[in-house]
Simulated assay, not measured.
Amino acid sequence: MSTTIGASASLLLNYTRSGQAVLDAQPSLAQLLSEDATTGSQLPASATVALSDEAKAYLARTSAAAATDSGTSLATRAANARQWFDQQYQALGISSALIDGKVAVDLTGQSRATLSAVAANAQGLFSKDESAAAATALQSRFDAALTPYAVVARHTGNYVGLYDAALSYVNAAGPDEQATKAWQDQKQALVDGAAVARANPGKAPVTKNAADPVQALLGKASAGGTGTPQTSIAAVAANARALLDAQADSAKDKGTKLVFDDSDKTGQQVDFSAFDNRSLAAIALNQGSAFSAGEIRTAMTELDQRNRASVLDTLKATSGGSDGASASLALVNRYAAMSTEEKAALGVSDRFTSQLVQTYQSIQATQGRLGGNASQGLVGYL
């Protein structure tokens, strides 16, 4: 059965592997995204923005960490966290989780449920500094997942989509976190913020609500403080090399070899299920000249297949691609969240992503005119 996914699908599938068909003289995406929203087309969008693959992967990792807490009571998590803090203080020779207002302990290994318990001072076991440090870590994780959507919202004016993505993230919290006043205030702030965004399309809602994590994120972005640390590509390549070597060793243990061609039945077929897209891109780009021709070819094939499948899923999620504005915006979000290495491996240029942004703006402008009020855009159209 064939599926019609609209004009946006053909646009994307023609461009995915290279920027060959992109129109000439397009500004770079960096230029577009750095424009002041008040100087460009403030054309609102009502399309819902789903979390990107990267954000979903982040949620999956935090969900996996939370799984270790799934059979643990809140009291036990709090007691374990109390013990962990005490051990950290002894090992580091400090007496507080904050030093000069900055977090002085490494909370990256703590689950979201544990951080929530500390932030809420569960069982009364934690100091103000410890609760503040945990709250800071929770906001940092939120920022890391939502920053790509803030970038896109600032250019497209689709702040409703940003708030929808934030609500998806917040709703992924466990029952103990959802029972806290902080979570309930945050959820209500996001619902209220989304309502303001819908009523005032094309610009960021001004809620002045301290519980609104989107407002906190946008405030940091305005001050230039939203750089999210990322593992170096050299480290990603080294990890990919180690994973491939482990599979090769496993094949040897079974008296066979690791093979990279589906038609080769003489050995153990390589398995990329444990590799994220950035790792595949590192192999395809042969970072550090650490990979063989077979590894490069197979990783590129896997990355390309994943990209095409994700594109089709994105378009199907936007009414099968029939709503051009929704489809274009979903693709803008997808490529904004893609790593630099993925873009390089797939041939996705700034010119290509700029064209997606312009396609979205053009459709929005047309729909606004048809609706009789360009300032209302898709809100009036839908």
Rank of each mutant, 00 (worst) to 15 (best):
S28V: 01
T108Y: 08
G109H: 02
A325P: 00
S263L: 12
R306Y: 07
I296V: 15
Q358I: 13
A251Q: 08
I296K: 11
A317P: 09
S326C: 06
T16K: 06
D86R: 05
A165H: 02
V196I: 15
Q123A: 13
S349M: 02
A50E: 14
Y381H: 13
L13P: 00
L167P: 01
V348T: 11
V348N: 04
S328R: 11
Y381E: 10
Q26K: 04
V151T: 12
D304T: 15
D164C: 04
A325N: 00
Q364I: 06
R77L: 15
T256A: 03
A60D: 15
L303W: 00
A197M: 03
D262Q: 12
L162Q: 03
L346W: 01
D245H: 06
A182H: 00
P205S: 05
N373C: 08
A299R: 07
S18G: 01
S319T: 11
E177T: 14
A55K: 07
T136H: 07
Q361N: 11
L74Y: 04
L92C: 01
A235S: 15
V332G: 07
A25M: 11
E35F: 07
D53N: 03
L92T: 00
S131H: 10
A21M: 06
V105A: 07
V103R: 09
A330F: 00
A284C: 02
L12R: 08
L98R: 02
A246S: 15
F352E: 09
A166S: 15
D143I: 03
R369E: 09
Q361C: 02
Y159E: 04
I94L: 05
S289R: 08
V357N: 13
A117N: 13
Q20K: 14
S41F: 13
K254D: 13
A132D: 15
A281R: 10
P205E: 10
D212M: 06
K208T: 06
P229V: 09
Q247A: 12
N209I: 07
N239R: 14
A365V: 14
